[in-house]
Amino acid sequence: MSTYYAGLLADVGILTLGGLSVYIILATGQLSLGNAGFMGIGAYITSYLTVTLGIGITPALFVAAVASGIIGVVVGFPALRLKGIYLAIATLGFGEMVRSFFLNLSAMGGSSGFHGMKHISVGYIWVWVIGILLVVMLLERSRVWLEMQAVNDDETAAGLVGLNATAIKVGAFGAGAAVAAISGGLFAHHHVYIEPGNFGFERSIDFVLAVILGGSTVGPGALVGSLVLVMLRFAGRHDGTGAA
């Protein structure tokens, strides 16, 4: 397999995880247009851990996922106050704030970016992608998933049958943020260079598109959507010199 197609495959994997991060949050009825922010958080934390502290990539990804998950929970609480389009706008703002934060973080290179990560193989990326996809597919057969659907559909009725809508919605934000962070960590170590611009609004939109193109009601949809999106990009490129 040529490096070029390997790169495309890596892009599909990373995008799939991003799509899943949106999908998990969307399952509770919350649309996040800021998941590139969590991806960026994951990318920077993982890179800091592997480059500066010399930790292995796998533990670094776990740490980044937990850290980003906690930030996701913190973001999830105020998000409870907002619904629909207002939540979408607020998460969009969150994503832009994170991007702006890394632009100012001179310790991690600021606008000139950060490098020094060791390149990871496409196979390693896909171990994560398949692993997380399987976890999500198992989760879809669990009671928690039904609880998420219930909260999505009718929060009041869900509360009155004993479901804690707050915990479920905030938890979904945390889980989505963790998955996005892993996507970011893998991105950073695949491209071995990151800059704040990698994690802007367009990236968040790609995640959402991957979910929508693949059908927003099943987990593997994110994988299908990512494939479609990367192939569309590939087909739309006349010169064929690299993916977006």
Binding site: L138, R143, V144, E147, G162, L163
Partner: peptide, 25 residues
């Protein structure tokens, strides 16, 4: 709840004393 089967309605409203493990698997 929209989109849920009768069976799923009976799963989602189970007694709430159960462990997280049971709920996420």
């Amino acid at each position: 709840f929209g989109g849920m089967t009768v069976w799923e309605h009976l799963l989602v409203s189970q007694p709430h004393s159960e462990s997280l493990m049971r709920r996420v698997l």
